[in-house]
Design a protein around this nucleic acid. Structure first.
Lengths: 108, 108
DNA sequence: TTACTATGTGTAGAGAGGCTATGCATTATG
DNA sequence: CATAATGCATAGCCTCTCTACACATAGTAA
């Protein structure tokens, strides 16, 4: 059944926004951060991540800038915009509410 | 009911299997049970539920039988099969694991 | 009677979003 | 010199949920 890399639809945006609230980061680093902070459970695929970043930018929740990193490589660094912070807060509340509801059903 | 309670994709099967583990029930009743046990948060739509039941039956996780209820109506009563119980256990474990991972990211 | 609500099952079509697979480019490592 | 790691990106597929219908019966209110 579900491979460990499969995310529940709708959670990726939340994870990305949350990760960017710590500090700006480029796509590749975002995936790594999520992998580490989830203790290797959530392995976000590039084919999921990049389209998600484009979506979020299109919605005005994040913005990007090409920068050169310490290793001399160019990377597209994303940062949270104000609307993104608001969205993050809303989605976290929604998430809690949702998880609690599921939990009630599973414990019924 | 105010909010359009959008389910996270992939959770519906879990909710249905869990509900059927209590006792056999027909579709309409399953939706009601979920609505009640989730304290009105999870309002499963019929257009989601019936296809889900057909999927689960096709997979051999549940089975159905037309029965007459107390109100004299015919209804398709579903019950969990052995494979469904096993699947439920697996999905609950997967769910816990997944939720914990998300939580770690959100608390990072 | 008429109409509306609740109960009950079902499908079609659309939309969303995550996945695989692929492509390209650069740097570090064996 | 080949391979892995870093880094961005898209196309097409697939699955699942939603809206919007369609149909049928029973009970209740006007």
């Amino acid at each position: 059944m579900a491979k460990k890399s499969e995310l529940l639809q709708g959670t990726l945006d939340l994870l990305v926004l949350k990760t960017l609230r710590q500090e700006p980061a480029h796509g590749y680093a975002i995936a790594q951060k999520i992998l580490v902070s989830s203790r290797k459970v959530l392995d976000v695929q590039q084919g999921s991540l990049y389209p998600a970043l484009h979506r979020l930018e299109k919605k005005g929740l994040i913005e990007s800038e090409w920068r050169e990193g310490d290793n001399g490589r160019m990377a597209k660094v994303y940062s949270l915009k104000k609307a993104g912070k608001k969205q993050l807060e809303e989605e976290m509340e929604e998430w809690s509410r949702y998880i609690a509801a599921i939990q009630w059903v599973l414990e019924a």
